[in-house]
Structure formats: structure tokens, C-alpha cells
Write a protein that binds this DNA or RNA. Structure first.
Length: 125
RNA sequence: GAACUAAGUUGGAUGGUCGCGCAUUGUCACGCCGAAAGGUAGCAGUGUGAGGAAAGUCCGUGCUUCACAGGGCAGGAUAGCUGAUAACGUCAGCCAGAGGCGACUCUCGGGAAAGUGCAACAGAAAAUUACCGCCCUUGGCUUAUAGCUAAUGGUAAGGAUGAAAACGCGAGGUAAGAGCUCACGAUAUUCUAUGGUAACAUAGAGUAGGUGUAAACCCUAUCUGAAGCAACACCGUGUAUGGAAAUUUUAUUUGCCCGAUAAGGCUUUUGCCGUUUCCAUGGGUGGCACGCAUUAUUGCGGAGCCUUGUGGUGACACAAGGCAAAGAUAGAUGACCGUCGAAUACAGAACACGGCUUAUAGAUUUAGUUCACUU
RNA sequence: CUGGGUAUAGCGCAGUUGGUAGCGCGCUACCUUGGGGUGGUAGAGGCCGUGGGUUCAAAUCCCGCUACUCAGA
């Protein structure tokens, strides 16, 4: 499943301010209902709702290659959880990497994201 | 065998499952655009996909735009010599100096006699030195061929200091002294000769004693228009995006509540869509992934890469053959499991190239030095 | 991509025509007070961000690096 990235800064600040939050060991997950879900659905070839995903990896975590690695791991973790469960669509999801991410493995991240999604009622039963 | 010196190479490989960017081929019932043909998103196949430093951004160059009659000043950069190079503050060889037993390494290496400034503390004095001392002359006093004292002058031998004190040492010389003179030696500089393209080296002759600092100002010689891919070109328009406010709280019915109707709409109901007003910000494509021409094969071009050969001490040059496939745009190379295993370092392209600087685990090649032992 | 700035005591800052580092607050001890505060006296605390160089001598001059920070397109 390909994700559409959040590229506008105001969407990030909105999500931080108004979204629901779950703090895990490795990641912090913010979720907000996407206001443009319908519009994106119309643009989508299969007319499906899509989650828009943003990754926040600050400069504190390390240099460029470390940040790239963290981003890849976050994407992989997200991909695995979405494959495992049926997730709700039409949301803005922002994943913020914490310091522990640098040494973490994909399974840890996936586990974290899974717990977060369960806590935030993002998973269809 | 140990300890070193110099120059290099490499920077995991491989199998499976899942996944990503780009190029290209095919497909496209359903989605979007279109009258249609078709295109596109998507899907499938094939190919390909990050370094030696991609980093720092310290130099140079291409490229682009702006400016521009010519010359000079100011500002900036460079600084032994010769060469290499598109160019450079880079590189090579050499010279000089410094370090090391040695292989070898290091050096922002012009000018202090063009001028100005500075040299704390200490010391008489830090630069055309006279405080003490030494000495001549004159005067005064006394115990009178001498001593004490005062003044004019001479002097740089001796004098606590300091990073640095007017070349060192000996002899002559003198009232006392002094490169004042001489011998030996050191330094700087000029001329000549020899060698070298040159820096410079060696030898001879002459001259000098004017400390240090130019990574203080400065002087000399050479070079120098400015800005940068967020450059720039094209397309596009008051459209697109964001923020704030208003539009949901009134009217009718009723004493009040509930309910109903109307005044935009929706229902994921502290909201969203739409509309109005005010404010703010600009989008897309190319540049850009060898280029140009060509329907294509292919041809031409280029500071491109590799291999071989030739020339050169070397940097490098020339010739032949071959190869040229990262191109993202919130930013693609990953994750997991096996096997070999030392694979554990530093680290992620953002217009491109040549250098420099800095970071770097492990593996490995070549040449050489010193020491020890054995023969 | 380009161009600046800063780093000095626990904190905030001075000090750069080179000469051996201070100020305020804070800290410690003592005095003052019945006690505390205020006030007074004395004191401690510095590899001047880091690695080199120039110089007799470097916080200061020159070069490299690190961290933080500002501005412009």
C-alpha cells in the first residue's frame, strides 16, 4: 500500500494540536481525521479512502544516513501492521521518531505501531 | 622476527520472502481526461539504482543571468625556482632551512638598508644608550711623586637584568679604550669565475657590523567584474493554497421546555463542504544525468571512465581499443531469515567536474630502513 | 547555495594597536543580630570551546575542527 505523504507544514501543526496521541517507547503516533478524505478518494483510481502519513525525524537523532534509516524502518513497520490488520482509512497519521528508534529493529517498531493503532481505534475488527 | 617509513588496493559476497525510485515494453474490463483515436493512474515483465570521502564548503573551472568604451586607484588573493594543468591557493621535480641512527618527513619559504609602530617586568641602556665604572685636564682639601672631592670632556674593556645587549677569541695599540689594526673563525652582502633553464651551489676578491617583529601597518611582483541551479528559461493566472472572522442563532407558534416549519447543504456534529470579507504565501515543466544531429541504424563532439602501448625522473601528455544505465523532490538502495564469515568503521547523490581539508573498523599489495637472531 | 556572529568562574557578561584575566549575581568562612534578612570583611572557584602554528611571550595574531546561532536568495 502506497502512502500519500503529508507535505504541508500546517497539516503537521494541526495534527499535533488537535490530533489524538499515543506515546510508545520508540514512536509517538498522532492521528487526526483527514478533512480532505473525499477529495483524495475522488482522485484515487479505485475510489478508496487513503491515509496520509507524515514522518518526523528530527536532527537530534543523528546525521543524514541515520535519519534515512529511521524513516525506512518506520515505513516498514507501518507497512507490516497494515498488512496484518484492516485499518481505518481517511486519516492523517504522523509518526514521530524518538531516540530509541536509532537502535531499534523493525519488529519493535511494528509492535509499537500496532499497540498505538489498537489504542487509537484505528483497526477494524 | 620486531619496530618503523613511503606509495597503493579494498570498503562484504551469496540464496530466499516482502518492499521502494527511475527508464523501457506490454496491458488497461472498471477509474480519470477525450467526440473518437488514444493518453494517463494502476497492474505485469525487463533493465538499472548512492561514496572514498557522496561530508565540510576552503580553492579552481564549466554552465546561467546581470553589468561592461579605455585606463588608473581602492579592496581582495597569491608569494623559493622550473615545470604540469582548462584552471587553481592543487600537483610533480629541484633549491634552501629544520627534524630523524636511517628509510624518509616537515616548512603562509619575497622585502626590516623606503617609511611608521611595538618590545611588558627587570635592567644604566631595548636603538643614533653614558647610571656606575675606567681615563686625561683643571679647581679645592689633606697626613702631599699619593689620596679624597667637584666640573668640562674622552671611552664602550667590566657591571645584578632579560627572549634578545652592538660578531667571537687572542695579540698589538692607547691616558683609558674601541674591528682602531692584525691573525684565526662565524655571519650578511656585492663582484668575478665555474656548474645549473632557474632558485642556488662551489671557489676567489672586496665591503659591512644599521636587534627582533611584516600570521603589526606597510612596500614589491603577479592575478582579480558580480552573483549563484532557490541561477536561469518556458507555461500559467487572480485562478491554487493557508490563516482569521461571518454564515447556528434568530423569527413564527408558546408562560416555559420538547417538537415542527422557514431562513445554503451534508452528517464521521466542539465538525466539514460551499459562499462572503480581510490578511499572507506562490504553482508547474525544463535546467537534470553524457550532449548535439537523425524516423532509426548511425555520425560528430567532449578537461568523462577503463585497458594496452609509447614518451617523460615525475606531475602528465599522445595513440589505439572498449565502455558510458543514480537522477529523487518531505526526497528512492531497505527489512527479515539462511550460508560463508573478520565483515564490527566513517558515513547518504540533490547541476556537473578537478583539487584541498576533515572522519574512517578490518583486510591486503609493493618498495625500503634500523635493530636482533640463525647460517 | 551564499555570507556573518558567538564560545572566558555555577549563571549573565567585560577584557583583542600581543605582556601573564576581571565585574555583577551566586557559593564558603567570619563579623553584625536574641535568630533570620540586609549590611560589612576575607576567600575559593578558569587548560579563556578544541588541535596546530607565528612570536621571547597568545584569551588576543594566523590556519584547521566542533557546537550553537543569525541573515539573504
Amino acid at each position: 500500500m502506497k502512502h500519500i505523504a503529508i507535505s504541508e507544514n500546517h497539516l503537521y501543526s494541526k495534527t499535533y494540536a488537535k490530533g489524538q496521541k499515543f506515546v510508545g517507547k520508540n514512536v509517538i503516533v498522532y492521528v487526526l481525521r483527514d478533512l480532505k478524505a473525499k477529495k483524495l478518494m475522488n482522485a484515487h483510481p479505485q475510489r478508496e479512502y487513503v491515509n496520509r502519513v507524515g514522518l518526523t525525524v528530527s536532527k537530534k537523532l543523528g546525521k543524514a544516513h541515520i535519519r534515512n534509516r529511521v524513516k525506512r524502518i518506520l515505513r516498514e513497520g507501518l507497512r507490516q501492521t497494515e498488512k496484518k490488520y484492516e485499518t481505518k482509512k481517511g486519516n492523517l497519521i504522523v509518526l514521530v521518531a524518538r531516540q530509541a528508534c536509532v537502535l531499534a529493529k523493525t519488529q519493535d517498531i511494528a509492535c509499537d505501531i500496532e499497540r498505538a493503532f489498537k489504542a487509537l481505534n484505528l483497526i477494524n475488527v
